[in-house]
Computed example of a mutant assay.
Amino acid sequence: MSTILIIEQVLNGLQFGVMLFLMAAGLTLIFGVMGLINLAHGSLYMIGAFAAAAVAGLTGSFLLALFAAMAAAAMAGVLIETVVIRRLYATDHLDQVLATFALILIFSEGTRWVFGSFPLFLDIPDAVSGPVSLPGGIQYPLYRLVLIAVGLAVGLGLALLINRTRNGVQIRAGENDREMIAALGVDISRLYTLVFALGAALAGLAGALVGAIQSVQVGMGEPVLILAFVVIVIGGIGSIKGAFVGALLVGLTDTLGGIFLPELFKLFTDAATATSAGSALASMAIYILMGAVLIWRPTGLYGARA
């Protein structure tokens, strides 16, 4: 196995990880502040991807498509929070799961009704298309490097928002004691709507960015949602830093596992069996990682200690 292949797969894992972070950051904020299990978060990812594809097709501008994706997902998030979610804060998690699962079905069928059942395609902008030469003679897609940079920039901006702004102070206080900040005069309903809209916009941005390297289709958000839940469990619920570290761990484990595990099995068996067994184990690797982290630290890497 060549060094160039290993470096390329590490970069692929980083790109996958930062995109998972955009999903997981919003999800962990919503759960940390509101205590809400939102299964419809993947639908917001899908809405962002479809909105980006539609706007890019009409205007030819990828930048406008990104803004449209974030705006559409944020508006859908505000609608969900004010119409449905606001009635679920006092209920148990089973009611939240059932209600948000119903939202998945509503958004999936609604998207299919508006856009049809066939996948849409979002073209990579010409300015960032094609490969770029990296040290060592590595040719790597420029767009994937841009995705890594965008993800890191959003992560930095989110950290500054949470740690250096008044709204960030309220969000962090809301994670610890919602009743107290409400008693101090903070409009808790407005805070919840703000957090939900922010998380939805991040999911929409992720959907738009990933939509340029894969087809945009109904149901595309659910597999990513599962991985996002794994990320926040590993990183610790409510922790942005944990979501970032967990996303990178999941991205690298999933990507590198698919390369190295079949090669490892080839040392002990024939090529066909090694490929099958290695691929099966690679698909379980992130869940094995999650189990190992929970055995070591039951609240996640950066979760609050009981």
Score class of each variant (00 low, 15 high):
V33K: 04
T269W: 11
I138L: 13
R86D: 08
R305K: 15
I234N: 03
D177C: 09
T59S: 15
L160G: 08
V250Q: 01
P223D: 12
G151N: 04
F260S: 05
S117N: 14
T275E: 13
A183G: 11
L289H: 12
A306H: 13
E8Y: 08
V33A: 04
T59E: 11
A153D: 03
L58Q: 15
L134S: 05
W296Q: 11
F107R: 00
A159I: 10
A69S: 13
V146N: 00
I213K: 01
H93Q: 13
H41A: 02
G251Q: 02
A206N: 03
G251S: 03
A173P: 03
R164K: 14
F265S: 11
L147K: 03
G151R: 00
F118M: 12
D187G: 10
F260N: 01
M1C: 07
A277D: 04
L122R: 09
V216S: 03
E263V: 14
E109C: 00
A203D: 02
I295T: 12
L29A: 07
G151H: 04
S279E: 09
L227Y: 12
I80W: 01
G199Q: 03
L261G: 08
H41Q: 08
M46W: 02
A68T: 10
W296V: 15
A56F: 00
A183C: 08
L11N: 09
R87S: 08
G257T: 08
T193W: 01
A73M: 07
T255P: 06
S2Y: 08
A149Q: 02
G242R: 00
T255I: 11
G110F: 07
M220H: 04
F265P: 10
T82K: 13
L142E: 05
V84H: 00
L147H: 05
M34T: 02
V10D: 04
A306C: 08
F107Q: 02
T193R: 11
T299A: 13
F101A: 13
A228Y: 08
A71D: 07
L256A: 03
L39S: 00
A76T: 10
A208E: 05
V132T: 15
I226W: 11
L301H: 06
E175T: 15
A272V: 14
Q9G: 01
G207W: 03
V146M: 10
V216T: 14
A203M: 05
G77I: 07
R172M: 12
E81V: 06
T28Y: 07
Q217K: 11
G221D: 03
R166S: 14
D92K: 09
